[in-house]
């Protein structure tokens, strides 16, 4: 078989857009689980907003991936008709929502990451991805303000809130590393000016996290553990359950429109 370079890079691009869609969908789904479960009504609303932003992003990335794929594919095919091993989100996004501290720490990690990632994606040689990033970057500014504020309030709040935050930091720390480790596919796209080189973001990410945690009187974890594999479809056990729930209705009625 003779696959041209162009076909190869097209496949890379579809996969990259799908990955970014997966990150957004899985996280948005997790945050949406807070509906009616927030610590007070204002938080039900605020978390709902954040979840909506992420689901909106997922739709944009998937729609683009579907357009590139052709064959009449739609965003829903990407969300509902793929298996655990096909999903390529970072593991951090799929972990169960945990308590409010866990959710806030995860948001802090991801919001700081996205506040560095999206401005770079805005300058991507691929104008579709750049356009999605331009919309998302504004949302992320608001998300980041929220997750920083909450981190400080909870870190510097009561003894209990401080401990819960410190525990969440410890529980989540090992999942951050893979975000800064582009694989071969991403490296090929980085070389073409399409993908963001996340390896370059780590130093600044750590500096910003450290600054926020210092203000919050929290300690930056030093633990050495690191779990990897999301981009290659090696997931935690949690993703399968999430997909079971999310895809249940859609797959029970093949071909139905909603």
């Amino acid at each position: 078989m003779n696959i041209s370079n162009k076909d190869n890079s097209q496949a890379d691009l579809i996969e990259y857009a799908t990955r970014l869609g997966d990150d957004s969908l899985i996280l948005g789904h997790r945050i949406s689980e807070w509906a009616s479960n927030g610590p007070f009504l204002e938080e039900d609303i605020a978390l709902g907003n954040v979840a909506l932003d992420y689901i909106g992003r997922a739709r944009m990335y998937y729609t683009y991936a579907a357009e590139l794929t052709g064959e009449g594919k739609t965003e829903d095919d990407f969300a509902y008709l793929r298996n655990e091993r096909d999903f390529s989100n970072y593991l951090l996004n799929e972990l169960p929502k945990g308590d409010f501290a866990f959710t806030i720490v995860r948001q802090l990690f991801i919001d700081v990451f996205n506040s560095l990632f999206l401005p770079q994606l805005q300058t991507s040689a691929n104008e579709h991805l750049a356009a999605i990033a331009s919309k998302a970057v504004k949302e992320t500014r608001y998300h980041l303000r929220r997750s920083k504020d909450w981190s400080i309030r909870l870190g510097d709040g009561t003894e209990e809130s401080h401990q819960r935050m410190q525990k969440a930091l410890a529980d989540l720390w090992g999942y951050v590393h893979e975000m800064f480790e582009p694989d071969e596919l991403e490296k090929r796209l980085i070389a073409q000016g399409i993908a963001v080189d996340t390896a370059n973001l780590k130093e600044q990410w750590l500096a910003e996290i450290t600054e926020t945690l210092n203000t919050a009187t929290l300690e930056v974890p030093e633990a050495e553990w690191a779990v990897r594999g999301g981009r290659a479809g090696h997931h935690t056990e949690h993703l399968g359950h999430l997909l079971c729930v999310m895809q249940s209705v859609h797959i029970r009625y093949p071909g139905a429109k909603w």
């Binding site: 509906a35 909506l52 739709r59 999310m246 249940s248 859609h250």
Partner: peptide, 29 residues
């Protein structure tokens, strides 16, 4: 929020998921 929130995670399309989520959020408002 509860009976409708019960279906946010299972909404059968992404569009429906987004619409339902924003509806439930309105109710909280």
């Amino acid at each position: 929020e509860q009976p409708e929130g019960n279906w946010i995670t299972r909404a059968p399309s992404l569009r429906r998921k987004a619409v339902l989520l924003s509806k439930v959020q309105d109710e909280a408002g």
